[in-house]
Design a protein around this nucleic acid. Structure first.
Length: 439
DNA sequence: TCAGCGAGTATGTGTTTTCC
DNA sequence: GGAAAACACATACTCGCTGA
């Protein structure tokens, strides 16, 4: 029987050639309009051009795309491309269609905008855009067209998208709080200035050599935010594979390590997937700055049981300012058999807890038996856990799920807990083992 | 020297929550 | 509703200790 099918390998070659041709044409057009090279989109913004560009090849999709742009996006694009801004929206939309080559990078910016933190985009845009341009992207009081904001940021300086991406990483991660283990004299000069890219890269290289795992820590950026130096590092973590038309490609899943140092480097917040590697890198950077062997350890701030009793009494009565008691998980309930118990609701469980306690006995008096509670803050469910402290009678470390909140909300939540209830709260983010060292 | 054991750590996977 | 991140839990692995 004659086989009429195209052999799989030939199909792969044909489709790859076609794909390659499309990619080349579009990349050449992007180069003509002064867009950043593929390396910028692929490596710095971690966008898969191989998947996105084939979607741009059909001219009719560009027209469809232009038709569904919002008024704010059209205004920003017209301003960026020098199209007369006093025209009607319809005329501006038609005028944009004549600039389809210039619009290709903006379609990539639109892809970049997907699933990026709104807070990160708005905060960065408010810093770099003119007041007039910023206001053009406003929808209502607190709402913005973030795609329009990113168009404006890109048109001002494409490289700024890298910084937005870094800020997005900060907004979406929880941070473990660390402090310098031993008291140490702060050297003269600025720690931020010490963190020169070449110096950080040399320290990372030394670390990679000592790991002997063939993985390379990639220095990405150091930025200064509110006087704090934030170091971004990308490192291969777990082995992973991706599937392409020509077969599977083996590699590693990237891990973003964010080291958020205080101005004097005595305190540190760490965001990462792994535990020991980021801590060791931070120790090495600090050791190089202080000129002596340094080590960070988990920060622990004590809250006593009596303070927690007062706090739990308040939320049980729905009397805590801006906090609603929405969940409790108890390890040793007063029910017969003393099993684990969860009481949860979308609204307050205060009344339910009070009723339960009237019938079966208290579930909030033995703090050590409470596995966790959740409070509603800014419409977000924030977990709180009470971790008993070794060697401190009735002492607890209170940790909260900071990754549920954005950076501004974290600051206000911590302040609310400290000022209103005298409770210092720390992140539940992975507590990096003090003993974790990489040799 | 080596098997057995337990503690600590790394990794994998499903679920929950938030964000867009 | 889908994507992403964090969380919770189960399992695998590593390492040090002990005793035969």
């Amino acid at each position: 029987m004659k086989d009429t099918k195209v052999p799989v390998c030939l199909y792969k070659i044909q489709s790859r050639e076609e794909e390659y041709g499309t990619m080349q044409t579009i990349l050449e057009r992007m180069e003509q309009v002064g867009a950043p090279p593929p390396e910028f989109w692929e490596n710095d913004l971690e966008m898969g051009l191989g998947q996105i560009i084939p979607l741009l090849k059909d001219p009719s999709t560009m027209e469809e795309w232009t038709n569904r742009l919002t008024g704010r996006q059209i205004n920003v694009l017209c301003e960026s491309l020098g199209i007369a801004c006093d025209e009607t929206l319809r005329n501006k939309r038609s005028a944009l269609k004549a600039h389809d080559g210039s619009l290709i990078p903006y379609r990539l910016v639109e892809h970049f905008a997907k699933f990026k933190s709104k807070t990160a985009t708005i905060e960065f845009a408010s810093e770099v855009l003119s007041r007039e341009l910023f206001e053009k992207c406003r929808i209502k009081d607190e709402e913005f067209d973030t795609t329009a904001l990113l168009f404006a940021i890109y048109s001002l300086d494409p490289d700024d998208l890298r910084l937005v991406y870094m800020l997005h990483k900060i907004q979406r991660s929880g941070f473990a709080r660390m402090a310098m283990k031993n008291s140490i004299r702060v050297p003269q000069g600025s720690f931020h200035e010490f963190l020169q890219p070449d110096r950080v890269k040399a320290i990372l290289k030394g670390f990679d050599q000592s790991c002997r795992d063939q993985r390379i820590s990639e220095f990405r950026e150091v930025i200064l935010v509110d006087g704090r130096s934030i170091v971004f590092i990308r490192r291969p973590e777990r082995p992973e594979l991706i599937i392409r038309t020509e077969g599977v490609v083996h590699g590693y899943r990237p891990e973003w390590i964010i080291l958020d140092f205080s101005a004097d480097a005595k305190r540190l917040n760490i965001s990462s997937d792994s535990a020991s590697v980021p801590l060791e890198i931070a120790n090495r950077l600090a050791s190089a700055w202080f000129g002596t062997e340094c080590e960070y350890e988990n920060e622990s701030l004590t809250t006593f049981a009596r303070q927690l009793d007062r706090f739990l009494d308040l939320i049980k009565e729905d009397q805590a300012d801006r906090l609603l008691f929405v969940e409790i998980i108890h390890n040793n309930s007063p029910l017969q058999g003393g099993g684990k118990m969860m009481l949860s609701n979308e609204g307050s469980i205060g009344e339910s807890v009070r009723h339960f306690e009237q019938v079966f006995g208290s579930i909030t008096s033995a703090i050590g038996d409470i596995r966790s509670i959740k409070v509603l803050y800014h419409e977000k469910r924030v977990s709180l856990i009470f971790e008993s402290m070794d060697g401190v009678a009735d002492g607890f470390v209170v940790r909260y799920s900071d990754s549920r909140l954005n950076v501004r909300e974290r600051r206000s939540f911590e302040e609310l807990m400290r000022k209103n209830h005298g409770i210092p709260v720390l992140s539940t983010e992975k507590r990096h083992k003090d003993s974790a060292r990489v040799h």
